[in-house]
């Protein structure tokens, strides 16, 4: 067994900052992946276009902030637009997917990605944009004389944490959550008990999509707004869902944090195994290695039922 060493020049403060970054990225991933895993788990639909809604959220936040001059007004309007878009798409497109096999779900949502991407290019163009950090959070916390941390990133993590808690309570502790879980367990039986499953599914679907769009909105001030952002987040969210187990919110949270840590520290730490050195440029690969390891150990994901 070759010696594994980790070479770095990282003091405690830098480590803490990277840890905060990792947690913040993990929370954002959770917001996108939770919608994906709920739509899989409850409706059995594989939605490739989920990442596109993240992109739509970010573009809406950018254009509406430009228009209204206030980030929060933009977020509220953009959220409302996403929910309406979700309800509309569920009614006319996605509801059809409940009855077909995975292959056709993949194809249809792949087609939707192409359509959304072209529409985005028509409406907003192909340029990269930035969104200004809202003024109340536009400061930094001085940690040492040279290092500081932006308040907005901390606020972002706090917002995500609140949403995650809300989701946990909604699905696990409320009557509505109980009917949603019942609906995923046995669709016909739940319907026979007098619950309108069509409306229930429509709500869950648009909520899942709105969550992805919301993640895109609040991420816009810390990352740039660019055409390929949907594809990028989609594939990482897939890995989160695979690692966590389909349909499990707990699994999604654990996997999102794991990936946040691996991705963030993979970019700054050089790992040496014997003479082989895994440079930070290969950090993109570390996520897939993590996924491969989890799959060898548990093919159905950490919290996935057999």
């Amino acid at each position: 067994m070759p010696m594994m060493t980790v070479s770095h020049d990282m003091d405690f403060v830098t480590f803490a900052i990277q840890l905060l970054n990792a947690v913040q990225y993990g929370f954002l991933l959770f917001l996108v992946a939770s919608g994906l895993t709920l739509i899989f788990g409850i409706m059995g639909v594989i939605n490739l276009s989920h990442g596109s809604f993240y992109m739509i959220g970010a573009y809406l936040a950018w254009s509406l902030t430009d228009l209204s001059g206030n980030f929060w007004i933009a977020v509220i309007c953009a959220f409302a637009i996403s929910v309406i878009l979700g309800l509309f798409l569920e009614k006319y497109l996605f509801s059809y997917l409940y009855r077909v096999d995975h292959l056709r779900q993949v194809l249809m949502t792949y087609g939707l990605i192409l359509v959304i991407d072209s529409l985005r290019s028509l409406i907003w163009g192909d340029d990269v944009h930035g969104v200004e950090i809202p003024s109340i959070f536009n400061g930094t916390i001085q940690i040492t004389e040279t290092l500081s941390y932006p308040i907005y990133r901390i606020a972002l993590s706090a917002i995500c944490l609140l949403i995650a808690l809300g989701l946990y309570i909604l699905i696990g502790k409320t009557k509505l959550g109980m009917t949603i879980r019942a609906g995923s367990f046995d669709r016909e039986m739940t319907q026979a008990l007098g619950i309108n499953i069509t409306i229930l599914y429509r709500l869950v679907f648009s909520f899942g999509i709105a969550l992805a769009a919301f993640a895109g909105m609040i991420a816009a001030p810390v990352s740039s707004v660019f055409p390929g952002m949907g594809d990028q987040i989609l594939i990482v969210s897939f890995i989160v869902v695979v690692i966590g187990g389909i349909g499990s919110l707990k699994g999604a949270m654990l996997a999102a944090m794991l990936i946040g840590l691996v991705d963030t520290f993979g970019k700054v730490v050089e790992v040496r195994v014997g003479t082989l050195s895994l440079l930070p440029e290969l950090s993109g690969v570390s996520l897939y290695l993590l996924m491969a390891i989890v799959l060898i150990w548990r093919p159905q994901g950490i919290f996935g039922g057999k």
Binding site: G111, L114, L122
Partner: peptide
């Protein structure tokens, strides 16, 4: 913007 049409065709085929 030909991808709009390709995408729509893919959806219709599915």
């Amino acid at each position: 913007h030909w991808q709009i049409f390709v995408g729509s065709i893919v959806i219709l085929v599915a």
